[in-house]
């Protein structure tokens, strides 16, 4: 007998996505920004896996796998860019990086 409704998982994923979105919009430290993006990707993964379980689709698992792969690539490149920018400008704040704004 199932005891956890599908909506529980979906609501939790929506909360995590909202927290991640608020983090991207409110924090200015680029490291915390990247972490918030990882949190949003995880919220999407939770939604995919919940639907996969309750609807009997394996596609959700495959899609979540690809999300993890893309997240790993994004974190690697993003953190390398953070390192390069920090060497050049000595800052981790996105507000300080406005070379294109003049």
């Amino acid at each position: 007998m199932t005891v956890i409704p599908l909506g529980h998982f979906l609501l939790l994923a929506a909360m995590l996505f909202g927290i991640g979105l608020a983090g991207v919009l409110t924090r200015r430290n680029v490291l915390v920004l990247l972490m918030s993006i990882e949190l949003m990707l995880n919220a999407v993964n939770l939604t995919l896996l919940a639907f996969a379980r309750y609807r009997g689709w394996t596609d959700g698992h495959v899609f979540a796998f690809f999300v993890i792969a893309v997240a790993a690539a994004e974190a690697a490149v993003g953190l390398a860019m953070v390192l390069a920018v920090f060497r050049l400008k000595r800052t981790v704040f996105v507000d300080d990086l406005r070379l294109l704004k003049r």
Binding site: H61, A72, A75
Partner: peptide, 26 residues
């Protein structure tokens, strides 16, 4: 939570790749 959804492979990947590789990189 993934384990509760019986996503065995994704549970392992979450710990190995996310909590392991990505966060160690961070």
């Amino acid at each position: 939570l993934y384990a509760q959804l019986s996503a065995h492979l994704l549970t392992a990947l979450q710990i190995i790749v996310y909590a392991g590789a990505i966060m160690v990189l961070f």
